[in-house]
Simulated assay, not measured.
Amino acid sequence: MSDTTPHPSIPLAGVIGMPIAHSRSPKVHGFWLQRYGIAGHYIPIPVMPDHLAEVLRALPRMGFVGLNVTIPHKEAALTLADVVTDRAALIGAANTLIFRPDGKIHADNTDGYGFIANLRQHAPQWQPSAGAAAVIGAGGAARAVVASLLDSGVPELRITNRTKIRSEQIKSEFGARVVVYDWAQAGNMLEGATTVVNATAMGMDGKQPLRVPLDALSGDALVTDLVYTPLMTPFLVEAQARGCQVVDGLGMLLHQAAPGFERWFGKRPEVDEDTRQAALA
Protein backbone atom coordinates (compact mmCIF):
# COMPACT_ATOMS: atom_id res chain seq x y z
CA MET A 1 0.00 0.00 0.00
CA SER A 2 1.45 3.37 -0.99
CA ASP A 3 1.37 6.43 1.21
CA THR A 4 -1.13 8.01 -1.18
CA THR A 5 -3.77 5.30 -0.68
CA PRO A 6 -6.62 6.79 1.40
CA HIS A 7 -7.11 5.14 4.76
CA PRO A 8 -10.63 4.09 5.77
CA SER A 9 -11.99 6.56 8.28
CA ILE A 10 -12.63 5.34 11.82
CA PRO A 11 -15.99 6.65 13.06
CA LEU A 12 -15.87 8.76 16.20
CA ALA A 13 -18.75 9.44 18.58
CA GLY A 14 -19.01 10.74 22.11
CA VAL A 15 -21.08 12.37 24.81
CA ILE A 16 -21.11 16.11 25.49
CA GLY A 17 -22.10 17.78 28.72
CA MET A 18 -20.76 19.85 31.63
CA PRO A 19 -19.66 18.17 33.80
CA ILE A 20 -19.12 14.91 31.92
CA ALA A 21 -16.42 12.90 33.74
CA HIS A 22 -19.10 10.97 35.68
CA SER A 23 -20.82 9.65 32.53
CA ARG A 24 -21.06 5.88 32.14
CA SER A 25 -21.81 6.17 28.43
CA PRO A 26 -18.14 5.74 27.34
CA LYS A 27 -17.99 2.43 29.24
CA VAL A 28 -21.18 1.21 27.59
CA HIS A 29 -20.27 2.19 24.03
CA GLY A 30 -16.67 1.06 24.51
CA PHE A 31 -17.93 -2.35 25.62
CA TRP A 32 -20.17 -2.64 22.55
CA LEU A 33 -17.38 -1.55 20.17
CA GLN A 34 -15.15 -4.26 21.62
CA ARG A 35 -17.90 -6.89 21.71
CA TYR A 36 -18.74 -6.46 18.02
CA GLY A 37 -15.17 -5.88 16.83
CA ILE A 38 -15.97 -2.44 15.42
CA ALA A 39 -13.17 0.01 14.64
CA GLY A 40 -14.47 3.15 16.31
CA HIS A 41 -14.10 5.34 19.36
CA TYR A 42 -16.51 6.95 21.85
CA ILE A 43 -15.22 9.66 24.16
CA PRO A 44 -16.54 12.08 26.82
CA ILE A 45 -16.27 15.73 25.74
CA PRO A 46 -16.73 18.55 28.27
CA VAL A 47 -18.38 21.50 26.53
CA MET A 48 -19.30 24.86 28.06
CA PRO A 49 -22.72 26.18 26.99
CA ASP A 50 -21.14 29.19 25.25
CA HIS A 51 -19.09 26.87 23.05
CA LEU A 52 -21.84 24.41 22.05
CA ALA A 53 -22.66 25.78 18.59
CA GLU A 54 -18.98 26.07 17.69
CA VAL A 55 -18.27 22.50 18.85
CA LEU A 56 -21.21 21.03 16.92
CA ARG A 57 -19.92 22.67 13.73
CA ALA A 58 -16.35 21.48 14.29
CA LEU A 59 -16.77 17.84 15.33
CA PRO A 60 -18.12 16.49 12.00
CA ARG A 61 -15.02 17.90 10.29
CA MET A 62 -12.90 15.88 12.75
CA GLY A 63 -14.48 12.54 11.83
CA PHE A 64 -17.34 12.49 14.33
CA VAL A 65 -20.51 10.74 13.15
CA GLY A 66 -22.67 11.67 16.14
CA LEU A 67 -23.06 12.47 19.80
CA ASN A 68 -25.05 11.78 22.89
CA VAL A 69 -26.11 14.98 24.67
CA THR A 70 -26.60 15.39 28.39
CA ILE A 71 -27.08 18.20 30.92
CA PRO A 72 -27.07 21.13 30.29
CA HIS A 73 -27.16 20.94 26.48
CA LYS A 74 -30.28 18.90 25.60
CA GLU A 75 -32.58 21.85 24.87
CA ALA A 76 -29.93 23.95 23.12
CA ALA A 77 -28.83 21.04 20.92
CA LEU A 78 -32.39 20.76 19.64
CA THR A 79 -32.44 24.39 18.53
CA LEU A 80 -29.09 24.01 16.73
CA ALA A 81 -30.16 20.92 14.74
CA ASP A 82 -31.19 21.08 11.07
CA VAL A 83 -33.53 18.07 11.22
CA VAL A 84 -35.59 17.18 14.32
CA THR A 85 -37.64 14.03 14.91
CA ASP A 86 -41.25 14.39 16.02
CA ARG A 87 -40.52 12.86 19.42
CA ALA A 88 -37.58 15.20 20.07
CA ALA A 89 -39.77 18.18 19.13
CA LEU A 90 -42.57 16.95 21.42
CA ILE A 91 -40.19 16.45 24.35
CA GLY A 92 -38.38 19.72 23.65
CA ALA A 93 -34.91 18.21 24.01
CA ALA A 94 -32.37 16.11 22.11
CA ASN A 95 -30.16 13.40 23.60
CA THR A 96 -28.90 11.87 20.33
CA LEU A 97 -27.33 13.70 17.37
CA ILE A 98 -26.40 12.19 14.01
CA PHE A 99 -23.98 14.11 11.78
CA ARG A 100 -25.24 13.31 8.29
CA PRO A 101 -23.01 13.04 5.19
CA ASP A 102 -24.81 16.06 3.70
CA GLY A 103 -23.59 18.20 6.60
CA LYS A 104 -26.94 18.42 8.40
CA ILE A 105 -27.33 17.71 12.13
CA HIS A 106 -30.17 15.26 12.84
CA ALA A 107 -31.59 15.43 16.40
CA ASP A 108 -33.55 12.70 18.16
CA ASN A 109 -34.63 11.88 21.70
CA THR A 110 -34.39 8.24 22.75
CA ASP A 111 -34.93 8.78 26.50
CA GLY A 112 -38.59 7.75 26.34
CA TYR A 113 -37.74 4.68 24.29
CA GLY A 114 -35.04 3.77 26.82
CA PHE A 115 -37.43 4.26 29.73
CA ILE A 116 -40.10 1.94 28.31
CA ALA A 117 -37.58 -0.66 27.07
CA ASN A 118 -36.10 -0.84 30.59
CA LEU A 119 -39.53 -1.54 32.11
CA ARG A 120 -40.36 -4.11 29.43
CA GLN A 121 -37.08 -5.93 30.06
CA HIS A 122 -37.19 -6.02 33.85
CA ALA A 123 -40.96 -6.06 34.44
CA PRO A 124 -42.35 -8.02 31.46
CA GLN A 125 -45.78 -8.35 33.11
CA TRP A 126 -46.19 -4.56 33.37
CA GLN A 127 -49.44 -3.29 31.85
CA PRO A 128 -49.44 0.51 31.41
CA SER A 129 -53.20 0.49 30.75
CA ALA A 130 -53.91 -1.11 34.16
CA GLY A 131 -54.14 2.20 36.00
CA ALA A 132 -52.87 5.72 36.51
CA ALA A 133 -49.19 6.61 36.31
CA ALA A 134 -47.64 9.04 38.79
CA VAL A 135 -44.55 11.01 37.77
CA ILE A 136 -42.49 13.02 40.25
CA GLY A 137 -40.61 15.81 38.48
CA ALA A 138 -41.20 17.93 35.38
CA GLY A 139 -37.74 18.48 33.85
CA GLY A 140 -36.42 17.27 30.50
CA ALA A 141 -36.21 13.61 31.52
CA ALA A 142 -39.70 13.77 32.99
CA ARG A 143 -41.06 15.13 29.70
CA ALA A 144 -39.64 12.10 27.88
CA VAL A 145 -41.20 9.79 30.48
CA VAL A 146 -44.57 11.53 30.21
CA ALA A 147 -44.59 11.28 26.41
CA SER A 148 -43.66 7.59 26.46
CA LEU A 149 -46.18 6.65 29.15
CA LEU A 150 -49.03 8.43 27.38
CA ASP A 151 -47.99 6.76 24.12
CA SER A 152 -47.96 3.38 25.92
CA GLY A 153 -51.59 3.80 26.92
CA VAL A 154 -51.76 4.91 30.55
CA PRO A 155 -55.34 6.12 31.14
CA GLU A 156 -54.26 8.98 33.42
CA LEU A 157 -50.91 10.59 34.13
CA ARG A 158 -50.49 12.42 37.42
CA ILE A 159 -47.55 14.77 37.79
CA THR A 160 -46.06 16.90 40.53
CA ASN A 161 -43.06 19.20 40.70
CA ARG A 162 -41.68 21.61 43.26
CA THR A 163 -42.12 24.38 40.69
CA LYS A 164 -45.78 23.87 39.77
CA ILE A 165 -45.68 25.97 36.61
CA ARG A 166 -43.50 23.31 34.95
CA SER A 167 -46.15 20.66 35.65
CA GLU A 168 -48.83 23.00 34.31
CA GLN A 169 -46.82 23.52 31.14
CA ILE A 170 -46.61 19.74 30.59
CA LYS A 171 -50.39 19.50 31.02
CA SER A 172 -50.95 22.29 28.50
CA GLU A 173 -48.75 20.50 25.96
CA PHE A 174 -49.69 16.85 26.54
CA GLY A 175 -53.42 17.21 27.12
CA ALA A 176 -56.40 16.07 29.16
CA ARG A 177 -55.00 12.80 30.48
CA VAL A 178 -52.43 14.78 32.51
CA VAL A 179 -53.50 15.78 36.04
CA VAL A 180 -51.34 18.21 38.03
CA TYR A 181 -50.87 17.81 41.81
CA ASP A 182 -49.41 20.37 44.20
CA TRP A 183 -46.00 19.36 45.59
CA ALA A 184 -47.49 19.26 49.09
CA GLN A 185 -50.00 16.65 47.83
CA ALA A 186 -47.40 14.43 46.12
CA GLY A 187 -48.09 11.55 48.51
CA ASN A 188 -51.83 11.63 47.68
CA MET A 189 -50.97 11.35 43.98
CA LEU A 190 -49.78 7.78 44.55
CA GLU A 191 -53.18 6.44 45.65
CA GLY A 192 -54.39 3.91 43.08
CA ALA A 193 -51.40 4.50 40.79
CA THR A 194 -50.07 1.32 39.15
CA THR A 195 -46.90 2.93 37.76
CA VAL A 196 -44.81 5.35 39.85
CA VAL A 197 -41.72 7.16 38.57
CA ASN A 198 -39.15 9.40 40.24
CA ALA A 199 -37.94 11.57 37.36
CA THR A 200 -36.00 14.01 39.56
CA ALA A 201 -32.35 13.90 40.66
CA MET A 202 -33.46 13.67 44.29
CA GLY A 203 -32.04 10.56 45.95
CA MET A 204 -28.92 10.59 43.77
CA ASP A 205 -25.56 10.35 45.55
CA GLY A 206 -24.68 13.85 46.69
CA LYS A 207 -28.19 15.22 46.18
CA GLN A 208 -30.97 15.79 48.69
CA PRO A 209 -33.29 12.84 49.35
CA LEU A 210 -36.73 12.47 47.81
CA ARG A 211 -39.16 13.19 50.63
CA VAL A 212 -42.50 12.04 49.23
CA PRO A 213 -44.53 9.94 51.70
CA LEU A 214 -45.34 6.49 50.31
CA ASP A 215 -48.21 5.66 52.69
CA ALA A 216 -50.75 5.64 49.83
CA LEU A 217 -48.58 3.47 47.57
CA SER A 218 -50.18 0.16 46.58
CA GLY A 219 -48.10 -2.99 46.85
CA ASP A 220 -49.28 -3.84 43.31
CA ALA A 221 -47.57 -0.80 41.78
CA LEU A 222 -44.48 -0.90 39.61
CA VAL A 223 -42.01 1.69 40.92
CA THR A 224 -38.97 2.97 39.03
CA ASP A 225 -36.36 5.67 39.53
CA LEU A 226 -34.37 7.41 36.79
CA VAL A 227 -31.49 7.79 39.25
CA TYR A 228 -28.94 4.95 39.02
CA THR A 229 -26.29 6.14 41.49
CA PRO A 230 -27.06 4.38 43.78
CA LEU A 231 -28.82 1.60 41.86
CA MET A 232 -31.22 1.05 44.75
CA THR A 233 -32.22 4.55 45.84
CA PRO A 234 -33.93 5.03 49.22
CA PHE A 235 -37.16 5.58 47.23
CA LEU A 236 -36.86 2.13 45.61
CA VAL A 237 -35.81 0.47 48.87
CA GLU A 238 -38.92 1.77 50.65
CA ALA A 239 -41.21 0.88 47.73
CA GLN A 240 -39.80 -2.65 47.65
CA ALA A 241 -40.35 -2.97 51.40
CA ARG A 242 -44.02 -2.15 50.73
CA GLY A 243 -44.25 -5.08 48.32
CA CYS A 244 -43.83 -3.20 45.04
CA GLN A 245 -41.89 -4.48 42.07
CA VAL A 246 -39.05 -2.02 41.50
CA VAL A 247 -36.86 -1.29 38.46
CA ASP A 248 -33.64 0.71 38.77
CA GLY A 249 -32.68 3.46 36.35
CA LEU A 250 -29.52 1.98 34.82
CA GLY A 251 -31.44 0.09 32.12
CA MET A 252 -32.89 3.35 30.80
CA LEU A 253 -29.34 4.65 30.23
CA LEU A 254 -28.40 1.43 28.41
CA HIS A 255 -31.49 1.19 26.22
CA GLN A 256 -31.48 4.88 25.22
CA ALA A 257 -27.90 4.39 24.04
CA ALA A 258 -28.66 1.53 21.65
CA PRO A 259 -30.38 3.47 18.79
CA GLY A 260 -27.52 5.99 18.61
CA PHE A 261 -24.89 3.25 18.55
CA GLU A 262 -26.72 1.58 15.68
CA ARG A 263 -26.91 4.83 13.67
CA TRP A 264 -23.23 5.70 14.22
CA PHE A 265 -21.57 2.29 14.05
CA GLY A 266 -24.00 0.21 11.97
CA LYS A 267 -24.82 -2.49 14.53
CA ARG A 268 -27.80 -2.75 16.88
CA PRO A 269 -26.26 -3.71 20.26
CA GLU A 270 -27.82 -6.14 22.70
CA VAL A 271 -28.61 -4.77 26.16
CA ASP A 272 -27.92 -7.67 28.51
CA GLU A 273 -26.35 -8.42 31.90
CA ASP A 274 -22.83 -8.13 30.49
CA THR A 275 -23.70 -4.61 29.28
CA ARG A 276 -24.97 -3.71 32.76
CA GLN A 277 -21.77 -4.98 34.35
CA ALA A 278 -19.67 -3.01 31.87
CA ALA A 279 -21.57 0.16 32.83
CA LEU A 280 -21.06 -0.53 36.53
CA ALA A 281 -17.37 -1.44 36.23
Rank of each mutant, 00 (worst) to 15 (best):
L222K: 05
L222H: 03
L222V: 04
V223E: 06
V223I: 08
V223F: 03
V223P: 10
V223M: 03
T224L: 05
T224S: 01
T224N: 00
T224D: 07
T224A: 01
D225M: 01
D225Q: 08
L226T: 09
L226I: 01
L226M: 11
L226G: 05
V227Q: 09
V227Y: 02
V227W: 09
V227N: 09
V227L: 14
Y228E: 02
Y228S: 02
Y228C: 04
T229G: 13
P230E: 12
P230S: 13
L231H: 14
L231D: 14
M232D: 15
M232H: 12
M232P: 07
M232W: 12
M232N: 13
T233S: 14
T233W: 09
T233C: 13
T233N: 13
P234E: 12
P234Y: 11
F235M: 07
F235D: 01
F235S: 03
F235K: 00
F235H: 05
F235I: 04
L236W: 04
L236K: 09
L236D: 04
L236V: 11
V237W: 02
V237S: 11
V237Y: 07
V237Q: 12
V237T: 13
E238P: 08
E238L: 02
E238Q: 00
E238N: 07
E238G: 03
E238W: 03
A239Y: 01
A239T: 05
A239D: 07
A239P: 07
A239G: 06
Q240K: 13
Q240W: 11
Q240N: 15
Q240L: 12
Q240E: 15
Q240D: 15
Q240Y: 11
A241G: 13
A241N: 10
R242E: 03
R242S: 10
R242A: 10
G243S: 14
G243L: 14
G243N: 14
G243V: 15
G243I: 15
C244H: 10
C244D: 11
C244F: 10
Q245M: 15
Q245R: 15
Q245I: 12
Q245T: 14
V246F: 02
V246C: 11
V246R: 08
V246P: 01
V246G: 06
V246K: 09
V247C: 04
V247Y: 05
V247L: 03
V247G: 04
V247R: 06
V247W: 06
D248T: 00
D248V: 08
D248Q: 02
D248S: 09
D248F: 02
D248Y: 03
G249W: 02
G249T: 11
L250P: 06
L250M: 11
L250F: 08
L250Y: 03
L250N: 02
L250D: 08
L250V: 04
G251C: 09
G251F: 00
G251V: 07
M252F: 09
M252C: 11
L253S: 08
L253G: 07
L253V: 11
L253W: 10
L253R: 08
L254G: 05
L254K: 09
L254S: 08
H255P: 02
H255Y: 06
H255M: 06
H255F: 07
H255E: 03
Q256W: 00
Q256S: 04
Q256P: 10
